[in-house]
């Protein structure tokens, strides 16, 4: 990666809104063609970072570039090479889906025929062809979101910024967005996407930056991060309260880590490295101890647990 110029660079970006520090020394380097996830809770500074990178917001200090063009000094050149899909759908409600895409296509300086053709292709691709001539006012939230995404893809940008692209989408639409992102990267587009879901970052991103309070607190490939985070978790919901200590002891033995217990929900939970092995050992162990489980589940750590591990602050976890 050393000889290739990075597609996106951010160095020590700072941005404050009055008293609020939204970016506090934010750094990012994304290699061409990579998918980079920005993972963080509400208010972490994800949108602010994306807005700076997409030339919408001037940082107070620090510098950033897209495709080698400084986002402040050479914003215009950068804009030819980036697409932005903001956190909230930004389309004209009074126009139809097709009219929206043609309008934006024309503003990318496509010829009228090319703008029309591109609008048709994108509507097709995002299952909006049937509703393409209805005004956006009549679209559902998910349809709007897909149209918004289509508008960001008009030029097949060199770098695409997606701010929480799947928030509010149904599973099918979410899968379509994921598929679209994969297709784009296969065609060489670099993608920077923000998300609050580790699952999503894990599915799409080759590298993840975990953001908190306007700075990156951890960065790496999903596998690396998960190793640091303590991998997946196993949750066991018991039938009787009284079994809680025994079950916790069994789980501690299998997981090799101290489980957390939640008596209210009769839940014991522990991180596990080898999902399947842990499961196949736990179930017989529970039944030979005479413990009835109502539910046993393997799951990815939540964002809260990720933060718990990365910040090492036990108080911060929310049950």
């Amino acid at each position: 990666m050393s000889s290739v110029e990075p597609a996106v660079v951010a160095e020590n970006l700072r941005k404050r809104y009055g008293e609020t520090v939204a970016l506090d020394g934010f750094d990012l380097t994304v290699a061409p063609g990579a998918v980079h996830g920005l993972l963080g809770p509400n208010g972490a500074g994800k949108t602010t970072a994306v807005r700076v990178l997409a030339t919408l917001l001037r940082p107070d200090s620090g510098r950033a570039s897209v495709a080698g063009f400084d986002v402040v000094a050479h914003a215009e050149q950068a804009r030819y090479r980036l697409g932005l899909v903001g956190q909230h759908a930004a389309v004209d409600e009074m126009l139809s889906g097709r009219q929206n895409l043609e309008l934006f296509g024309r503003l990318y300086h496509l010829r009228p025929s090319a703008a029309r053709a591109r609008a048709g292709e994108l509507l097709e691709r995002f299952r909006l062809a049937d509703t393409g001539s209805k005004p956006v006012k009549q679209y559902s939230g998910g349809m709007r979101r897909r149209l918004d995404l289509a508008a960001g893809l008009i030029l097949s940008p060199y770098v695409l910024f997606l701010d929480e692209p799947t928030t509010g989408l149904d599973p099918r639409a979410r899968n379509e967005v994921w598929a679209a992102v994969r297709e784009l990267t296969a065609a060489g587009t670099t993608v920077v996407l923000t998300t609050q879901y580790l699952e999503e970052a894990d599915q799409l991103a080759g590298r993840i930056s975990v953001i908190d309070h306007g700075r990156v607190i951890a960065e790496g490939a999903p596998e690396e991060l998960k190793r640091r985070i303590g991998a997946d978790r196993i949750d066991v919901v018991l039938h009787r309260d009284a079994d809680l200590p025994t079950a916790a002891a069994l789980l501690a033995d299998i997981a090799g880590a101290q489980p957390e217990s939640d008596p209210d929900r009769r839940l014991v939970s522990a991180p596990v490295r080898d999902r399947m092995a842990a499961l196949s050992r736990l179930v017989p162990a529970l039944s030979s101890a005479g413990i009835t489980a109502e539910d046993v589940a393997l799951r990815r750590p939540t964002l809260d647990e990720v933060f718990l591990h990365l910040t090492g602050d036990q108080q911060e976890v929310v049950a």
Binding site: A54, T55, L56, R79, H88, A90, V91, F104, L107
Partner: peptide
Amino acid sequence: STDAARGVTDRFRSLPMAPSA
């Protein structure tokens, strides 16, 4: 104000169009 509230203004600003347009 509708464009500003709906994010359409931001969309325009992220496009390589003439700012005066």
